[in-house]
């Protein structure tokens, strides 16, 4: 086994399931911010603070560290889905994620 004395933090690949979209997430970067830098509109952008739930995803595979996220939006559903808010997901490996829009979108009854 070989240990580097000063390991270089690696970027990770983030794959959006069901699409051909894949982007790189730099060390210390959250998945939403990485997607913003990779291409407009790949993930929906909301409050960027783990609060509104607009950028919710299911992490299908891979490891990550999560910042604080609104319990309202990430409590496991009946199927035990692993919800997370992309703006608070810091990858520790390559990830495969799936968009998981919040139920009961609060969009108001404004559109005529």
């Amino acid at each position: 086994m070989h240990f580097e004395s000063t390991p270089t933090p690696a970027s990770h690949r983030i794959q959006l399931i069901g699409t051909d979209r894949e982007f790189s997430c730099a060390p210390g970067q959250d998945v939403l911010n990485a997607s913003i830098r990779a291409g407009v509109g790949w993930l929906p952008v909301g409050c960027r603070g783990g609060g509104c739930g607009v950028c919710r995803v299911i992490v299908c595979s891979g490891e990550y560290v999560a910042g604080r996220m609104s319990k309202r939006h990430v409590a496991a559903d009946g199927a035990g889905a692993r919800f997370a808010l992309a703006c608070r997901v810091y990858p520790a490996s390559d990830l495969i994620v799936e968009l998981a829009p919040i139920a009961g979108s609060p969009a108001p009854l404004l559109h005529p």
């Binding site: 909301g46 409050c47 609060g51 509104c52 607009v54 979108s105 609060p106 969009a107 108001p108």
Partner: peptide, 11 residues
């Protein structure tokens, strides 16, 4: 016109 966030982003 509205931006999408004004409608969709709330806490």
């Amino acid at each position: 016109r509205l931006n999408e966030a004004f409608l969709a982003v709330t806490t």
